[in-house]
Design a protein around this nucleic acid. Structure first.
Lengths: 248, 248
DNA sequence: ATTTGGCCTTGATGCAGATCAAACATTTCT
DNA sequence: AGAAATGTTTGATCTGCATCAAGGCCAAAT
């Protein structure tokens, strides 16, 4: 199943789809040139695990296209997903040699990689990279803390609604639509992956998705295609503050 | 109950107890001088909430002494603690105007504050501050993700054991002892605060603490004073990998 | 010295979600 | 076309933790 052939692709930073959101977002053209010299692309197939927790990590990378996950696994097999990586998200930690989590491709995936050593050197000399990385890390920390509330205090139904709302919002963002009224999107995760993200079992996920469908909050077409007629209705099910409080 | 009198203290950075761990850790003496010019101290009483979620935040700060917590609250009152702030930890987010969480002092607390505007300016001009902040934020992100595993997948007993192990370890670190063999420490949190941190009810916390005591994993003296005769025994109860895998 | 209030423990009961089990749907392989 | 693999749904039952309720401990207030 796990083919180990990695395609290598080549691109210009200029027409890179994540140019304005990734670690390189703030770079001036000279900084970008130096990054361009050390970057290389890698492709992975859906289902492939790119990095195992504990592995030596000699590169850092940005997700260009596709979706990856960060998961932690306990000795007895209990699993918790601790991050969902979308295009422009950053993988790896400058200053650390060992991976702390498994990184798995849930869809076909293209990554823009940098060998760690040169990247770290670049980071100390070009402040715009470090600046952007700090910003992105702070955002991730906020997201992780929001997820802590979900894991610790939300009901199964609220958890599902929250996940759907997040995916819907990101999808709308990618399509440059606003997350209002009627939204249609595909779930990039299996029921089991959803369960691992939400701290539930796959059976409970399945039941709660069915319940939301039965109650008219969502519609299903096949297993993965979701139709949300009224986004506000979905938001009411998340348990979050209704006053649309969006920070940023 | 909530007295609103804030004492203002004055110190030299040179003999500051968190000099080598806080955001200023990497600063050269000239950078430190500039920080010293804009800093001011504030004291808070145990139980006081320093910042309410949604408040305008016009300063950032380091915890100098004492312990504070970050908590999120849902409309119906469900609460989840999303961070425990110990001496040297940083509060606030450069580049954001509004607080995302309630910040509460659980013990008497002294903070070293910087008005946000000057601090942000200092950050762009002195790379060592931004560097250190990135490092600290990455550490916090790791901690948050470890907590996600705890919240999503651990049993009540494992949660309690994990919390005790973390507090024991930090306490040993502060006292410059190694976290091995026999350890003695005081819980800085009430049962309710522990519950808010662990995603449990206070009754379950109480029961599981009693159970660990009954099973000889810990001993209690009063409600808050904990004696761990065999730290490894406690670690076995946390559900974590036994191979003492410590990153960093 | 008694009362008050904060904090903690313990018991009885209930329920949300886990676990166990079976069958169905869809895609891929032969 | 049939078989096998993968992902999903649904049902029956179990259980860990929540909830509800009562009482204990101790320091501070009266």
């Amino acid at each position: 199943m796990a083919h180990h052939d990695l395609q290598t692709v080549s691109h210009e930073c200029g027409d890179c789809p994540i140019r304005h959101r990734a670690v390189c977002a703030r770079c001036e053209s000279d900084e970008l040139q130096r990054l361009e010299q050390i970057k290389y692309y890698r492709s992975y197939q859906a289902g492939q695990t790119l990095i195992w927790s504990g592995d030596r990590m000699d590169f850092v990378a940005s997700v260009v296209t596709g979706i990856a996950t960060l998961t932690q696994t306990m000795e007895d097999g209990r699993r918790q997903m601790v991050g969902l990586l979308l295009p422009s998200d950053f993988v790896g930690r400058p200053g650390r040699t060992t991976a702390a989590y498994d990184v798995t491709a849930t869809t076909d995936l293209v990554m823009c990689c940098f060998r760690k050593k040169p990247f770290e050197e670049l980071m100390t000399s070009t402040p715009h990279i470090a600046q952007r990385l700090l910003e992105m890390t702070l955002d991730e920390l906020d997201a992780a803390r929001e997820w802590m509330l979900l894991l610790g205090r939300k009901t199964a139904r609220e958890k599902i609604a929250s996940l759907l709302a997040i995916i819907a919002r990101r999808d709308a963002h990618l399509k440059l639509k606003s997350a209002k009224g009627s939204i249609v999107f595909d779930l990039p995760l299996t029921r089991e992956e959803m369960a691992d993200y939400l701290g539930l079992t796959l059976e409970t996920v399945s039941r709660q998705v069915s319940a939301l469908k039965r109650d008219g909050v969502i519609e299903l077409e096949g297993k993965r295609h979701i139709i949300v007629r009224d986004f506000d209705l979905l938001l009411e099910e998340t348990g979050d503050d209704s006053d649309g409080g969006y920070l940023v």
